[in-house]
Nucleic acid binder design. Sequence first.
DNA 1: CTGTTAGCGCTTTCAG
DNA 2: CTGAAAGCGCTAACAG
Lengths: 337, 337
Amino acid sequence: MTTVNLKHLAKELGLAVSTVSRALRDSYDIGDDTKKKVMALAHKLNYEPNPYASSLRKHKSKTIAVIVPEIANNFFSLAINGIEDVAQEKGYHVLIYLTHENYAKEQSITRYLQSGRVDGVLMSVSNETNDIQHIHALKQKNIPIVFFDRVCDNVDTTKVTTDDFESAFKGTEHLIEQGCKNIAFFSVPSFVSIGNKRMLGYEEALKMHKLKVNPNYVVYDTNNAEENLKQVKRVLSGKKRPDGVFASVEKLAITTYHACNELGIQIPKDIKVISFSNLNTASLLNPSLTTITQPAYDIGKRAATILFRSLDKKNATIMNEKVTIAATLIPRDSTRQ
Amino acid sequence: MTTVNLKHLAKELGLAVSTVSRALRDSYDIGDDTKKKVMALAHKLNYEPNPYASSLRKHKSKTIAVIVPEIANNFFSLAINGIEDVAQEKGYHVLIYLTHENYAKEQSITRYLQSGRVDGVLMSVSNETNDIQHIHALKQKNIPIVFFDRVCDNVDTTKVTTDDFESAFKGTEHLIEQGCKNIAFFSVPSFVSIGNKRMLGYEEALKMHKLKVNPNYVVYDTNNAEENLKQVKRVLSGKKRPDGVFASVEKLAITTYHACNELGIQIPKDIKVISFSNLNTASLLNPSLTTITQPAYDIGKRAATILFRSLDKKNATIMNEKVTIAATLIPRDSTRQ
DNA sequence: CTGTTAGCGCTTTCAG
DNA sequence: CTGAAAGCGCTAACAG
């Protein structure tokens, strides 16, 4: 099976290679009848242009790299899903690179990408990353980068993330609308960026609705399931038992579920629970659990769209801005699914 | 930032382009001192060879395509993880294409790949796929394919899948070793390939250990959670209550969990439960649940290894064989994690 | 409207 | 051991 190329087509048609090349794309400039003939033969012979030849010539590869710490993680999988959808639509190809949260790997990947294999990069940095030389090196080679989820604040480019504040606000408001007046907040410690933003959203919603912020209702994840359960049970069996729980991370929603089971508290009859969730594990436990799902797919899609927009222009410039996307709240009723 | 290439290096060193090119790889054939000088400058100027030029010249791209129906699915994510790990190690690049279970998309992707953009393909076919013209077309272009998980039986190439029979056998045996004598089997219908294979493994294990196969202990998924729960409860509250449950799919393990809750049956005290699982959702419910996890990562790794092995040889030939990988059984104790 | 020509950056004979 | 030259397949001036 000899691979068919422009020269073949040209010879077979008695035309010049360039004519065939143009007929296959340009349209205007080439006779209508020749165009048809060329197309017909190309199709008949199953001609597929060699992308490497064309990339070499045009200095454009119609390919982007996606660099993520992991893929066995619902969030990144969904993000890649969004990215790939946009890519397919725009005719781009997607190379995947995993860093496994390893800075050295991240470095060698970005270094390699200076070769010009890709036109642009979508990236979630590893949690080891604090030096950003390798990222600047890429930018210097005019390879645009868009960050998503795990961003580098001190790089001038677009960063696409979840709107944690807004989402926590909406989630809290949802509980309030359901009639909750005493809402507990179970979270990761506030020195974690998302923990803090979500906490602020929660508090803001309470204030907005003139509800008191009760520090006794707050439990922070201790990385110890036994201890978490104890804390949660303490709050749920206190004098003034909360009528709502906002779990800022899924793990604590599950803890809440177990605690309620042990204490004989019914969800959602006695207490309404809402939780941030990527895996939706929690909602399997109790279908009545309302979840706030991170907009992973949309984040990927958005980041990709921004990147492609810039790539398709001549002057590939990307704004230095933060784009936040609100999570979606999925209310669940109490009928078993 | 002008991109640095061989010509630059050559000029700067007063050498010929070809010499520089060889110095950068060949080693033997080039003077040791020139080699060092070349290396040094290349490193200093951050030289990265243009992969497209070299691909064009060598007709090898060091790139493979991975075609999967979805990625927002733990199995495929893990498989891709395995693939990427091997790829990185072998110096290959990984292009991702999603079909969304859409045959037309799968066709257009494979068609495009005839362009020679990739050296080989790893693929899980869409569940719409029954025609295999597009796959043969690829093979005709000498682009090797290895199937994983979702295979095409009637294509001559290697297929890597889970060993469902073996895994179900081992899982059942595990329950037996724990002292179970009456083991229920909750499964997808047996006309589904995996359902059937797992069922056979379960039965074989029972026979092997001289236990009776009791048809009353079998429940098939009905795609209706209400009904499933009813069936499972019926089995669990029957006259001769099983002392073990083999859930062939995770969903039914969760159903089992709920049923036990409602019936006041304790896991694992009264009844031992084991389940096939990808998400490990079930084990979050009850940490004492033993799971059988599909070897997604290993399947990806294995498939990739087979493909690369063939690509790295001159005569890229792939055996027509089935490779099955046994799932891993993860026993869990009853201490809360 | 079509053909000729000159490369993109790299590898690979073939000479020396 | 090193250099000159051809060419991978395609595109983009530049002619005509």
